[in-house]
Design a protein around this nucleic acid. Structure first.
Length: 152
DNA sequence: GCCAACGTTGGC
DNA sequence: GCCAACGTTGGC
């Protein structure tokens, strides 16, 4: 089993939206590296849920992969802002797994806090200039995050 | 709202 | 295949 982190702007889709929906198709990712990670996700993988461009910004909960990546329907929808004219049904470009709600942390593990924790310095999230919105997390990093969540 | 750091596009 | 120009991300 693998561990991941996905970023989302809570104004567009927050952990509370996931609480309400219980599960959601993780659509609209339009970056090739992020897409490749989405395609690697397997059922049962655990996903840290991160709020970017938020107050406060940080990790807010956990989701689980409940369906592997399927063609992202928004790429075929000419009315969608995520429409991709170069994508075809035979050769889709973009994919979305389904994520289901597991847990909302009592508090936010804020970005500044993460930067101070021994063992997290290798996280892609913390690398200067990193914008990758879907990224792998090591088992050790995940364990540290869970511990922090219980302390928050 | 600013802007640094990235990623993508397209002319050559 | 290079790289300038442009668009986007995301912390602050």
């Amino acid at each position: 089993m693998k561990y991941w982190l996905v970023k989302t702007e809570p104004e567009s889709y927050s952990i509370d939206d996931l609480v309400r929906d219980r599960k959601t198709e993780w659509t609209a990712v339009r970056n090739y590296q992020a897409r490749n990670f989405l395609k690697e996700m397997a059922i049962g993988d655990l996903v840290l849920f991160y709020h970017s461009n938020a107050e406060p910004t940080g990790v807010v909960g956990i989701a689980e992969v409940s369906r592997t990546a399927q063609p992202d329907p928004t790429q075929f929808d000419s009315k969608s802002e995520y429409f991709d004219p170069k994508a075809t049904k035979d050769a889709p470009r973009w994919f979305c797994p389904t994520l289901k709600f597991i847990e909302k942390f009592k508090g936010v593990i804020v970005l500044d806090k993460l930067r101070t924790i021994n063992g997290l310095e290798g996280m892609i999230l913390l690398k200067k200039g990193s914008r990758l919105s879907v990224q792998p997390v090591s088992a050790g990093e995940y364990r540290i995050l869970l511990k922090l969540a219980t302390l928050t």
